[in-house]
Write a protein that binds this DNA or RNA. Structure first.
Lengths: 188, 188
DNA sequence: GCACATGATGTCAGTTACTGTCATCAACTC
DNA sequence: GAGTTGATGACAGTAACTGACATCATGTGC
């Protein structure tokens, strides 16, 4: 059993999620995660900047996916429609098969304030990226920023609905429903 | 020079802000902060849960101030108007005399992602408290949550404007302007 | 004035997240 | 098959944070 087992990053992610879920985030040491993954503590910190980040790898890809979709939305789309197109593209990541994994991950985050902080800054970065994408479409400020933040609110509503809904509804449908809800609220 | 110098919490806060501003948050140790305040490291952690929290003491009072004002807003006020009343009450804390202090504090936060995370979760808690206050006024969901989050966006815009504006404009006026901006955006 | 309770602080030992440095080993190149 | 490259191990070190217990200032009852 030499070094160089494949996918060290993935093994660390899986080991961390398992342990966080089993015994809690704070009760889990990085040494334990690394051991379960067959690696050392030092190697963990070569793959992840800190103990929280192991749960958030992939948020960059999610952001890129969404931003690319916004960039690709038809020029005729209004700002909020462009955001909706972007969010729906996230369905490629949030597919029904991965819902159990997402549920476990979210329950771990919801149980720990430190992890919630990390989640919030990821969403804030996504909001900033969405605002930039809107500006590239010619949307002026402060509409770009406000629409982007509204988009984050929609994302959260859609994601939570997708998580909690038992049926294997597609994420795109959850986004559609959240947008409809937003229009109702905004029109009142 | 015995123990029991008055206002240990305040001395720790001032020492921390000075050192964070002088040499940076990460380059400052809790031992150094405590020493400047004439206390020990252990005592620091009796006053503050962690090294970040020393910059955020008072956010609970701010939240209470705003929520109380929302509760006290006239029954005839619309949800967003009630939020505006609440945010304007924060002018009691953000008075022009404290602007230099707020500027220093914000520059420290803006220079460190960890501190930004803490700021974000404080704002998220404020948003949750605002949503509860709206529900007490009979506002239904999801309008309560969405209006509360919009209120946070308004707060951030107003606060940043108040910070950056050289004249000693009152915070209440910044809130008024931000609300007007929001109405313009929403009506477009 | 004095014993006593109370609360804030000091002291000290310990755990753990995180970093710097250098050695080691697998795979790839020529 | 020697050298290069990149990932990992080993080890020492710093600093955030915690638990346990001692100590001291202050207030209270007498």
């Amino acid at each position: 059993m030499g070094r160089w087992q494949p996918d060290a990053t993935g093994r660390l992610q899986q080991a961390a999620l398992e342990l966080y879920a089993e015994r809690g985030y704070e009760q889990t040491t990085v040494a334990e995660i690394s051991e379960r993954a067959g690696l050392t503590e030092r190697t963990f910190f070569r793959h992840f900047a800190d103990k929280r980040e192991v749960l958030f790898r992939g948020s960059e890809e999610l952001q890129q996916l969404i931003v690319d979709a916004v960039d690709g939305a038809p020029a005729s789309a209004t700002p909020i429609e462009a955001i909706a197109v972007g969010l729906q593209a996230a369905g490629a990541i949030f597919d029904p098969d991965r819902r159990p994994h997402s549920l476990t991950r979210q329950s771990v985050i919801d149980a720990n304030p430190g992890l919630q902080e990390r989640e919030l800054i990821k969403l804030a970065r996504l909001a900033a990226a969405l605002a930039d994408a809107l500006r590239r479409r010619g949307v002026q400020d402060p509409a770009a920023g406000l629409t982007a933040e509204t988009g984050i609110a929609v994302f959260r509503v859609a994601f939570e609905h997708w998580l909690r809904h038992d049926s294997d509804q597609h994420f795109e449908d959850s986004v559609r429903e959240a947008i409809a809800e937003l229009r109702t609220v905004a029109a009142s």
